[in-house]
Amino acid sequence: MNLSVELSKEDSVQRFHIAGEIDAFTAPVLKDKLAEVQDVPGLQAELNLTDVTYIDSTGLGVFVGFYKTLKANDGYMKIIGVNDRVKRLFEITGLDEIIDIEKGVGENRDATL
């Protein structure tokens, strides 16, 4: 079970490319990486989950925590590239109603935020 998180900054948007399974074992890796930037006021973050195969409830907790921190700091978070399984998870938990989630990677990348 591996997880990799790559961060690239494009204009004012922090783009995270996450790959692997996000579960109780790997969630701390993601949490630490997101924590590096989450306190920046007005942060614009885009999380690309195209290569994420599975998220368990601990992993979901990391996204919820990141969302709440960003919201408190006037930031914005968007999730892109979710597969069907991950999408269903966001739907069941009702998180798709409050977090901006886009299935697959959009064509117009400039308009993602």
Partner: peptide, 14 residues
């Protein structure tokens, strides 16, 4: 049987 609703503890006015 499903019903729409957000996880508890995420935001106050769900």
């Amino acid at each position: 049987l499903d019903a729409k609703g957000l996880l508890l503890g995420v935001q106050p006015n769900a």
